[in-house]
Design a protein around this nucleic acid. Sequence first.
DNA 1: TGCAAATATATAACGTATTATATAACATTC
DNA 2: GAATGTTATATAATACGTTATATATTTGCA
Lengths: 161, 161
Amino acid sequence: MVEDVVRTLGFLCMGSRLRRIGERLQSDTQQVIDEAGLGIQAGQYPFLAAIDRSGPLTIGELAQAVGITQPGATRTIGQLLELGFVDMQPAPDDQRRRLVSLTGKGQDLVDHSKMVIWPRIAAAVADLCGDLDGPILEQLAAIEDGLAAVPLVRRHAARTG
Amino acid sequence: MVEDVVRTLGFLCMGSRLRRIGERLQSDTQQVIDEAGLGIQAGQYPFLAAIDRSGPLTIGELAQAVGITQPGATRTIGQLLELGFVDMQPAPDDQRRRLVSLTGKGQDLVDHSKMVIWPRIAAAVADLCGDLDGPILEQLAAIEDGLAAVPLVRRHAARTG
DNA sequence: TGCAAATATATAACGTATTATATAACATTC
DNA sequence: GAATGTTATATAATACGTTATATATTTGCA
């Protein structure tokens, strides 16, 4: 068994570590989504959620809302357009802006997700790290160990009381 | 100002969020490295550190040590080979394995980094989140706010006492 | 009014991770 | 000891983020 340097080095490799755990968590989340038979990527959800919460948004606003750069938002919205979950139209007052809104299909997906999938994912993640406390490095270690022990797909809000 | 959905949705977007913060932290770390004039990428450091700690390792062991997949390790080691920081030779007993070791130049870089850069980075990250405590979502919020307020490059171990 | 600057989005080029698969070397088994 | 399976690394294809730059539209000012 080889030593996990990223873990050993602590604060020095904090960036790599957060990224690594985030990627792991996202791919585990993808499993939950796939299990439900929804044809969508985990990374696309925040865009739909943003529009659902705030109403039609421009590309730039979506980038800000999701916390990525504008080209990244342009790309993901392009995918969601192809999938038929969103619709895009120039803003009436400013032809540079593109207003992105949910289609009926997109709204259906969001509504269904809000009832079935999102609570499921949030509960699984809460089960993984909701009760943690203390220094961040210790919590990260607990999360890594927890995921290794019981993958996200098999977790539920088992916390009684 | 647009709402930060990833932050708002909490546990539901934990993966995206960790990843996002990790990327941010890593690119901030890169600034510190560049400031010191070292020609190396933040993501390459854990490989050098792993070899420095454990002695020559194979590609597979490096992948495990750093927590990425084997093709990722193959690529990064290829870069470090080009840069002259590591050397690679077939293992004497098993021609499939490639043992990766530090060159003189690589060892010099590690030794210098251990004295000057790594403590600097670890101190800056510790300044950012070393004193935090409590639920992880709150700590993540504090880290994001902290980075926005004072970037990593301008942080030092200012915690006195 | 007309032209320069600013803003919003799109596109291109790149970096670095992933999964899937190919190739080479070793191990096993009949 | 030749066929078969396993292991280690390399390569190809894909995903998704970034920075830099191009294009279109709007704004502001002489």
